[in-house]
Design a protein around this nucleic acid. Sequence first.
DNA 1: GCATGAGTGGACCATGAGGTCCAGCCGGGT
DNA 2: ACCCGGCTGGACCTCATGGTCCACTCATGC
Lengths: 198, 198
Amino acid sequence: MDRMNRGITAKGLATRQRIVVAAALLAREKGAAETTLDDVRAATSTSKSQLFHYFPDGRADLLVAVAEHEADQVIEAQQPYLGDLATWESWQGWSRAVLAHYAELGERCPLSSLTSELGKSSPEARAVVGALFATWEAALLRGTMAMLPDRVAAVRQARSILAAVQGGVAMLQGTGRTEYLEAALAAAIAPLKTGAAA
Amino acid sequence: MDRMNRGITAKGLATRQRIVVAAALLAREKGAAETTLDDVRAATSTSKSQLFHYFPDGRADLLVAVAEHEADQVIEAQQPYLGDLATWESWQGWSRAVLAHYAELGERCPLSSLTSELGKSSPEARAVVGALFATWEAALLRGTMAMLPDRVAAVRQARSILAAVQGGVAMLQGTGRTEYLEAALAAAIAPLKTGAAA
DNA sequence: GCATGAGTGGACCATGAGGTCCAGCCGGGT
DNA sequence: ACCCGGCTGGACCTCATGGTCCACTCATGC
C-alpha cells in the first residue's frame, strides 16, 4: 500500500483506532479515572510499548484522543436531525433522537467523566469540549433562528436548549431516570412550536 | 464537658469537622480525584492516623462525608428562597441566588467531581446525591404546585427547572460562561410567571 | 537479499498514594 | 494520683500504575 505521510502505515492507524475505540468503551463503562493503561492493554491485546508508540505522551494523550472520539459520537448521534432543525417536526425528531440515545447509554456519559478527569489538567481536553459545545450550539442556533424572528431570542433559546440537554443527562447520570431529560427537552423546545420567544 | 455518646469528644468532633471542610475545599479546587489524603493531611495539619481514626474506611469514607457536606451547602445556598417558592417574586429571587452562587463558585462544582469519582464505586455516595436531588426536587415541586393548577404539569415543570440548573452549571463548568445558566434558568421558570403550564 | 524503520512484546523501573501500626500524649472521671 | 480511653504523630509497608527500554519481527523499497 501507499506510503502514508509521517511514516504511519495503514496497519498502524488501524491499531491506533482500535485502541481509541476500546479505551472509549472502557472510559464509558467505568469512568475515565478508573481506566488504566493496563485495562486498555488487556482489552486491545496490545503491549505497553504500542500504547506509548501511538500516544507518545502516554495516558493523557490517549484520553485526549478518546475525548475527540466521544465528541464526534455525541454530534453523530444527533444526526441527521441536528443538521437541519428548520421545522417543528425536525425539532421533535431531534428531541426524540437525543432522548433515545442517552436512554440507551444509560448512566454512563462519555463526556462528564472525561471533562472532570481532563478538564483541570490538560488544556487540549478543554479545547475538545469547547469545540464540541461550539459546534453543537451553532447547529442549535441555526435551528432556533429558523424558528424565531428575533435573533437575540434565538441565541438565548439555543443556549437554554443546550443547557437543558446537559442537565437532563446530568440527572440521568445521577438518578438513572430519564424523566428529567424528557421534561427538560420538552420544556426547552416548547417555545419553538408557536414561534413565541422565550 | 459532657460525655458524648459513642466515645467521641467535642474536640474530636471539631477535628473531624475541620478535616471535612478542608477536604471539601481541596476537592473543589482541584477535583476530588486529585485530592489525596496527604493533601488533606497537609492542609489540616493532622496525621495519617487521625484521618483513619475519624474515617475508618479511609479515603472513600472521607469523600462520602465531603459529599454530604457539599450537598448541604448546595441546598443552603438557595435559602431562604428555596423554602418558599410561592410567588413569582420568590422564584425570581431564587433564580438570582442560584445564578450568583454558581457564578461565584465558577468552574469548580463540588458535586460533579464527587459524583464521577464516587458515583460508580460507592453506593453511599449515590445515596447522598440521590437524597440531595430528592429534597431539591421536592422543594421545587412545592413551588411549582403553588404556581400551577395542574399537578402533573407542576411535576414536569419542577423536573425541567432542576435539569435546567444542572445543565447551566454543567455548561458553566465546561465553558466558564454563565450565559447558559442564565438563559436556562430564565426559560425554565418563565412558564410560572403567567401560570401557563409547560 | 538486505537495510531501514514501523510495529510489537514484555520485562523492568520509579513513585505516588492508600493503608497499617505502634508508641506517646492528654484530659477527665473516680 | 492514677488510669483509661480517646487523640495525635509519623515511620513503615504494599502495591497499583504510569512510564522506560531493549530486543525482536515484519514489511517494503532499493
